[in-house]
Design a protein around this nucleic acid. Sequence first.
DNA 1: CTAGGACCTGGAGTGCGCTCGAGGTCAACC
DNA 2: GGTTGACCTCGAGCGCACTCCAGGTCCTAG
Lengths: 150, 150
Amino acid sequence: MATLEASVSPPVRPSTHVGTSTDGYAGDGESTWTIAQAAQATGVSVHTLRYYERAGLMREPVARAASSHRRYTASDIAWVSFLTRLRLTGMPIREMARYARLARAGAGTETDRLALLTEHRRRVLDRLHEEQRNLAAIDHKIAHYERIIR
Amino acid sequence: MATLEASVSPPVRPSTHVGTSTDGYAGDGESTWTIAQAAQATGVSVHTLRYYERAGLMREPVARAASSHRRYTASDIAWVSFLTRLRLTGMPIREMARYARLARAGAGTETDRLALLTEHRRRVLDRLHEEQRNLAAIDHKIAHYERIIR
DNA sequence: CTAGGACCTGGAGTGCGCTCGAGGTCAACC
DNA sequence: GGTTGACCTCGAGCGCACTCCAGGTCCTAG
């Protein structure tokens, strides 16, 4: 698995995608990431980044340079990183989309967002416990084989 | 989720599938389960039971009555139950098939089976730990919302 | 002016683990 | 002897989360 939060230094100066101003991106001097850099930084593929955007998982469509290339902000990166936490704990895309929709709607939806995360947390904990029970059964079997082999 | 190891009393006498001897099943008086009972007992669907057999996950093809209906033994049930542990801890079907193949081959493959399970155990533990880290991040976010909402 | 490389879009393809449907057999019961 | 119901096989279909492809744009470097 590609390491999450890999060692991609936040491009303090906008980095290898040159042309900060030739670039047409009207973001107020904030440093941005290209899609390839964002992929590195978040540990997901560029395909998946585009897929996530299409699927409505971003709080808002990612900003574009004049070239129509995506420009990810630090906050986009953080958002995607959190999304991967949700994914890795088994949240389906549909539900992440719901969470994103709530976040997009802004203030007033915090209670709903909290409820969604709390419910997810409960399910994750349940699964974690079940997984531990299953692991115990496997350990048991392993012990059995160790006894047999001697 | 259908409860694993549900309350299906082992049919001490071969149970609701009648005709023990009209049945043609040459198993030495051992009590057996129909596929529906086996599904109940293991918590997987009858479809999945057939699928597992096709996929080569059984140590040997399940015994049949003269009617060509499957008859599961207690040991089949135990085997499937263990398979579900492996599945629920994320082992792919292909690898379960490999495990089954080794078990089918019988004595002499214990070392390989042990290695397979040990390796699986390691991966499960890793995932468990990662899952816990992800959960911590989610908890953190939850705390954030709780602070906001007051 | 050409070539290369990073990126774009829309849509098709993939792998996994089931899940389901059609059409059939068989035994029991009315 | 007809109906019901549990089961059978073979093969197709499904939902999910990507993953990839074709054909194109844009910018930079030689």
